[in-house]
């Protein structure tokens, strides 16, 4: 069973995404401690602010030489510059709001 961590300050959005991913048979955790995040298969970050402010970075989430966990970002930012910056930083999937939860489930199941 996949282990997916959710990072979001919005409890309603967090609950919605968690429900959607539970349908894919995943175990959801909202523990944001770095040790816990590193043990997950996928980390879903809702909002790009954590990366933009430097509070969160791909290097801090992953151990040296490993490509785990996979990082998904769901954000309201639609501009090409933001999307490319995120992908160049090492984010695996960047999705924009309004997010298609079915597509998110499929991508989480594929990884």
């Amino acid at each position: 069973m996949k282990r997916i961590a959710l990072i979001s300050s919005d409890s309603a959005l967090r609950r919605t995404v968690a429900l959607a991913l539970e349908c894919a048979g995943a175990e959801i955790t909202t523990d944001t401690r770095m040790e816990e995040l590193r043990t997950c298969d996928i980390v879903v970050v809702i909002g790009a602010a954590a990366f933009a402010s430097g509070r969160l970075s791909v290097e801090s989430l992953r151990r040296c030489g490993e490509h785990r966990p996979e990082i998904f970002v769901i954000s309201w930012q639609h501009t090409e510059q933001t999307v490319l910056s995120m992908l160049e930083c090492g984010v695996d999937q960047y999705m924009t709001f309004p997010v298609c939860l079915g597509r998110l489930r499929i991508k989480a199941a594929d990884k």
């Binding site: 309603a12 919605t16 709001f97 309004p98 997010v99 298609c100 079915g102 597509r103």
Partner: peptide, 9 residues
């Protein structure tokens, strides 16, 4: 309504 604002579900 809240879901419609943020998701495509």
């Amino acid at each position: 309504a809240e879901l419609a604002a943020t998701t495509d579900v």
